[in-house]
């Protein structure tokens, strides 16, 4: 039995669901960002696996995986800057306590 496309898709599904669980249940903003990184990694595995098994002649999947890695770095930088700003003004990084706009 060789490794096929389905193996990679199942792996990325499991990784995505773990990331989703982390995003839905964590209070700490940094931990929520970690969950988002896991989900982005799952998407990247999908892109590269489809590139390898469906269209091996092109590099479209790898190209977009690289773009997603770049955007994940941007998202982490901006998100963590927001965490720093929120911590300085509200002195908490728990999302259920950041409710100043909640009426």
């Amino acid at each position: 039995m060789t490794v096929g496309l389905t193996h990679y898709l199942v792996l990325s599904t499991l990784l995505f669901c773990l990331g989703l669980f982390g995003v839905l249940t964590r209070r700490n903003v940094v931990a929520i960002l970690m969950g988002i990184e896991l989900m982005l990694n799952a998407a990247n595995i999908n892109l590269v696996a489809f590139n390898r098994y469906i269209a091996p002649g092109a590099v479209a999947g790898q190209t977009f995986a690289l773009v997603i890695i770049t955007l994940a770095a941007c998202e982490a930088a901006v998100g963590l800057a927001l965490v720093m700003a929120a911590y300085r003004t509200l002195e908490t990084i728990h999302v259920d306590e950041i409710d100043v706009m909640k009426w």
């Binding site: 990679y8 990184e37 990694n41 990247n44 590269v48 696996a49 590139n51 390898r52 790898q62 995986a65 690289l66 890695i69 770049t70 994940a72 770095a73």
Partner: peptide
């Protein structure tokens, strides 16, 4: 998946 360049970037950035 024989995507060595993406692997290198993954190590560097992630």
């Amino acid at each position: 998946l024989s995507a060595e360049f993406v692997a290198g970037i993954q190590v560097l950035i992630y």
